[in-house]
Write a protein that binds this DNA or RNA. Structure first.
Lengths: 113, 113
DNA sequence: GACCATACATAGCGTTGCTACGTATTGACG
DNA sequence: CGTCAATACGTAGCAACGCTATGTATGGTC
């Protein structure tokens, strides 16, 4: 997966990975790698600053803990974060349809709405 | 369409709009607006520099002409540009599948490969 | 003791697209 | 004839974003 491809869509991925419950940064990376079949292997230098950004923006909330002698910061979606995720999803659907229609000459997946 | 959403995918769109024959910048903008149903309305400050970039990279080649008293620069895909477009398409398919699977919990469009 | 996996963090950089502006011609409208 | 919209090109400067490289520290394994 080329680097810059992700631009503008990272936040959505991070929020989505937190949807089913709190996770810490390292775990988010592993989760995304797993669900993408290894195609998405985000560097820590991408994820940690992004999580800080999302927290500052009030979309997630972090809490320190210590597990097996290692400190962790587990993040949880806020109500605002959930709304943002839902917007990201909608934006992605539109975006994918538009780019798909240009690149592939068709609607990638007909939008049921 | 939010601004930054496009990052990293603009080149593919521009190359695709030149696939069916030469076009000048203004015409590329109109074409993309048309095929996207008005959702994609690229500012000239985005398109012209991008076309220059693509030309410098050898993916397209421009030629000046004058039509109805107005100067135009019509761009045409080079062989290298065609190869790049095909790579962009493949990259898009992979990318859309990955993001789709994370955001929507499924493969948006199963990849036939 | 060395090394890898786990877990966090930041500085600095390059790319990218946008905003805002500027130039020039043609044609329509009053 | 003056004004304005559409056509058509261009650039400077900016802000956002994600990556690379690097650093710290612990626990488990060999």
């Amino acid at each position: 997966m080329r680097a810059e491809t992700l631009k503008g869509h990272l936040d959505g991925l991070l929020l989505a990975s937190l949807e089913d419950g709190p996770r810490h940064g390292y775990s988010v990376i592993e989760e995304l790698r797993a669900v993408s079949g290894g195609q998405l292997d985000l560097p820590t230098g991408t994820v940690y600053p992004a999580l800080h950004r999302l927290e500052t923006a009030g979309l997630i909330q972090g809490r320190w803990s210590v597990v097996a002698g290692r400190r962790r910061r587990a993040y949880q979606l806020t109500a605002k974060g959930r709304r943002a995720l839902s917007k990201e999803r909608a934006a992605w659907t539109r975006f994918a349809a538009v780019v798909g229609s240009v690149l592939e000459g068709r609607q990638p997946c007909p939008d049921p709405t």
